[in-house]
Design a protein around this nucleic acid. Structure first.
Lengths: 231, 231
DNA sequence: CTCTACACGTGAACC
DNA sequence: TGGTTCACGTGTAGA
């Protein structure tokens, strides 16, 4: 008699699954079948194993709920990402990753007073000469444009070094304005790839005196959009 | 002798798993054990089932590769999302969803010539009187700030109506500049919730003559950041 | 037929 | 001890 786990699989597969019910997280399906006498368990010859079965049943429904929650999260994620190409789980995640990478070329951070002078000091500390500063404000938004050139007696500092320093400056005064404050805390071990520098070629330290634009554009309710570009 | 599927599980569990190898997607583990004689298959009494086992083996490694790819995608997604709270799969997705929702309050679209006059026409078509326009440009970015008031002889148009119209204008000239062009094409059936209007209270048509700010800030390489606010 | 993608139940690890 | 999360192998439906 080959009544093994495979039969349980078959029995449970036939139940209603009620897919894609967004929002509600209830699934009323009873499956406590008492006719289930598999003869395994040569080890641990305790006479009562019905408690173990009951426990496994709990695990079963918990796992179903977990799977449903994960799927719902995945669907909402897919709903947020535009130009979705495929319906695959992997493609959903991949498109979401690309979308976030694209969005993160603008970097938002919360507003903190004193950020302006902090950025000025940092640019000066990098050995750059600020040639012009433009501050445009409207409503609750602030747009700062810095233009700086390399000093003659200073060593050439790479462009990405400048970028990292300025990003660090605007990130060190972190403020959890919304649910999302500052990017790139890279604890997870994967290919982060967020350059924040956009794809175009950067002349870096190759140019004679390269300009630098640093743009901080603040959002409503004490939030700032920060953008960095060079030429 | 209870040698069933559980034993196969146990045998395969002991293999090396080599987790978190980003980039390389190769796993060289051979598992073609010929000592595998389970006596099931009372149905379909065909004499040869060795081919079926070989096929299942293929499915096994394919499934492993799929799982690894999904996990890698999930880790990269987690690496992109700031202020991650938990390491759970569900929390990763939830934080990513919140992050995208937060980012999408700025709306980016690709640059198209003629957008400025298009927005002007649309504002005029809405029965609003443009009082001032500010255009700031630097590098390859464009920032447009429109301020408009309600005409006296016009009916009061709701604020969200204005918002939708302007978003529609800037979205109808779609251009796939990057991998992500325009938000809210809501094909997937879930809670989209992207308001594009930020959380603050909007006076809507209640004010006597309300101003309107429409801000289009273009990004490098023919991309535009679009932001909409009212007061 | 093969190949791909998915849901399923289950054992195990960690609070 | 139960609760929760994860990885695993398998069955199966659709190209």
């Amino acid at each position: 008699p080959p009544s093994t786990v495979a039969q349980e699989h078959q029995q449970l597969h036939g139940l209603g699954v009620g897919r894609a019910d967004s929002g509600s997280e209830r699934s009323d399906m009873q499956l406590g079948d008492p006719d289930d006498n598999v003869d395994g368990e040569t080890q641990r010859g305790s006479g009562k194993d019905g408690g173990g079965k009951r426990q496994q049943c709990k695990n079963l429904i918990a796992e179903r709920k977990r799977r449903k929650k994960l799927n719902n999260r995945l669907y909402t994620l897919r709903s947020l990402v535009p130009n979705i190409t495929k319906m695959d789980r992997a493609s959903i995640l991949g498109d979401a990753i690309d979308y976030i990478v694209g969005l993160q070329k603008q970097v938002l951070c919360s507003h903190k007073s004193g950020r302006f002078v902090r950025i000025m000091d940092e640019i000066a500390a990098l050995g750059l000469q600020i040639t012009s500063v433009n501050v445009t404000s409207y409503n609750k938004l602030v747009l700062n444009v810095f233009r700086a050139v390399m000093k003659d007696n200073e060593a050439a500092v790479p462009a990405d070094r400048v970028r990292d320093s300025l990003l660090e400056v605007t990130r060190e005064m972190y403020g959890g304005g919304g649910a999302w404050s500052s990017p790139l805390p890279p604890p997870p071990p994967t290919n982060a790839k967020l350059d924040g520098m956009d794809g175009q070629a950067v002349p870096a330290a190759a140019g004679d005196h390269y300009q630098l634009h640093h743009q901080v554009l603040g959002g409503y309710h004490h939030q700032h959009l920060q953008y960095l570009a060079m030429d």
